[in-house]
Structure formats: C-alpha cells, structure tokens
Simulated scan of single mutants.
Amino acid sequence: MQQVKDQHTVPKCYLKNFSEDGNNIFRKFKKVTKEDLTNIELKKPTSLKKATTKEHFYTVEKGTETMVIESIFYSREIENYYPKYYDLLINPKISKLESRDDRSRILMCLLSLHCRTPKQFNYFFKSIPENLQDRIDLIKEEYKTSHIGNTLINFIQTHEYKTITIVKINDSSEFITSDNPVLILNPKGELINHKFKEQFNKDNVIVIPIDHKHCCILKNATDKNGISIDEKVFYNGIKRIEENCNFAWEINAKIIKSADLVCYGREKYIKAFFSIYKFID
C-alpha cells in the first residue's frame, strides 16, 4: 500500500465544508497564556491539503501493513463515506434514516473526528501511570490501533441511541471549527473535552459543527411519556431546528476553548467574529 507521509488529523472532507472555495481555509492560531487568557493570532489561508497534517501520525511501525489506519480505516471506511452522509444530514427534505447501518456510519464519521486528534491522544498519554512510563513508546504505538478498535467503538456504542438534531443558523452568523472539533458537554452545558473518559458518559451531549451553517447535536432521547429509550429503541429520525447568532456565538466560544492550536472558518466571518470576541472574552 502506498505510503502517506502527511496524514490529516482532521480530514479534508470535513474542513472543506468550512471553506469558501473548497481549496483553502482561513486560520486563527490559539495561544493560552499563564493567566489562562486566550490570544488569537491571525494567519493567512492555508490549503486544505496542508491543514492539520502531521508526519506519519497514524503510521504503524510494527506489523505487516503500516498504513492500516491512515489508508484502510480512515481513508476507505470513513472519509470515503463522509460526503454522502454530510449531504444526508444537511438535506432538509430528509427526516428519517433508511437503516441502522446509515446511523452507524453517521456516528462513525462524526465521532471519529474526536478520537483521531493529537489533543485526545495526549489526554490518554497523560493518564498512563508512572510505573508504566518505561514502556511509553510501546504504549503510544499500541494506542494508534486501539483508539479505533477500543476508544472509537466504545464511543459509538455509548451514544448509539441518542437523537440526531441538525441546527441551521438562520441569520448571517456562522459556525467555526477547530483542530479538536467535537464538543462534549455535561448536562449543565459545560465543556468537558479535557476529561478523557467523559466521551463514554451516556449523560453527556455531543455537539459537532459540520459546516459554516449547520451543526449536529447528539443527546438522550425519551418516549412520549418522558421515559428514556436508551438501549431500547433506535431513533431513526433527524430533527431539524433553526437558531440565530446567539446559538452560533455560544458554540463558537466552546470551539475556541476546545481547540488545541488552531481555529478554522470562512475568512470574512472569522475576521468579524474575532474582532468582537477579543473584547468580550
């Protein structure tokens, strides 16, 4: 299999939907000071081919197929399907999923955006006990494959009964995204991305901006009597609601906090947003 040196920790098929021309994307670099203040530095647009790349980040050094994660799993099984399910999610005419397989594919496409990022890898590495530090290189190598076979699969199973809601912004506001684009919120709406095992908490809500006008929300479902349907019934509908700039601002503020190093968006809006954000934050 062809060796791929520059591997995308946030895939092009996702970032493309925050681009104005489908080829380039505008960036804001994030730096948190000792006083825990967020400074945002303006950067010129970069090509989608170069955004979020890290050399051999998923390459498996041991084994017969070094590209099993990058090429076989992420490229073939996720990025190959992403455009289809993105179109399905934003299509206002579609209110119901045809099959359980469609639902599983949607969750795999969206939730993998969380598991594959360097920030989430690092949260796992920080949890390794001191008595195993002498094996850290081996553990890091093993985690490349286990983050798919263990972390991602358990993440999907935790939230497989949640409702799917697509929120569309109905004014001139837009969503931005980042190099750590999946937001995990507790029932109070607080961002808890920094806690590694919180993705396996069924009570949490998952929010993912999917383009500059839409975001997807995964949250617990109940029947008409208010009783949870978790592990009872698969909800195959897609709820669709509209929100305004207040909702977009709330999500964008959480995206900035969730970001590791970079925020992404459309140039005109992201410049206007951060010109105001620096005064309010």
Rank of each mutant, 00 (worst) to 15 (best):
M1E: 10
Q3K: 14
V4L: 09
K5C: 01
K5H: 07
K5V: 11
D6Y: 15
Q7H: 12
P11G: 05
C13S: 12
Y14T: 05
Y14F: 14
S19R: 09
E20N: 14
N24Q: 12
I25N: 14
F26G: 01
K28P: 00
F29Q: 13
L37N: 15
N39A: 03
P45L: 05
P45N: 09
K49D: 14
T53N: 08
K54W: 02
K54E: 13
K54N: 11
E55S: 15
H56V: 00
F57Y: 15
V60W: 00
E70M: 10
I72L: 11
I90C: 03
N91R: 06
P92E: 00
K93V: 03
S95R: 13
S95I: 01
K96M: 12
L97C: 07
L97D: 06
S99D: 08
S99H: 07
R103E: 06
L107A: 06
C109P: 02
L110K: 03
H114I: 00
C115M: 11
F121R: 15
F124P: 04
F125T: 10
I128C: 08
N131A: 07
L132T: 00
D134Q: 13
D134K: 14
D137S: 12
I139L: 10
K140M: 11
E142G: 06
E142I: 01
H147Q: 13
G149S: 06
I153V: 15
T158S: 05
K162R: 06
T163Y: 00
T163I: 06
I166Q: 05
V167Q: 08
K168M: 02
I176N: 06
I176L: 12
S178P: 05
D179L: 09
D179R: 07
P181D: 10
I184N: 05
I184P: 02
L185A: 06
L185D: 04
K188P: 00
G189R: 10
L191T: 12
N193H: 04
N193L: 05
H194Y: 10
K195I: 09
K195Y: 11
N201C: 13
D203A: 12
D203C: 09
D203K: 15
N204P: 11
I206C: 07
V207G: 03
C216H: 00
D223Q: 10
K224Y: 11
K224T: 13
I229Q: 07
D230C: 08
Y235Q: 12
G237M: 10
K239Q: 09
R240G: 03
E243G: 01
E243M: 12
N246W: 02
A248L: 07
I251K: 11
I251P: 09
K254Q: 10
A259K: 02
D260W: 07
V262G: 04
G265M: 08
K268M: 04
K268Q: 12
I270P: 05
A272F: 02
F274K: 05
F274E: 04
K278A: 04
D281N: 14
D281G: 01
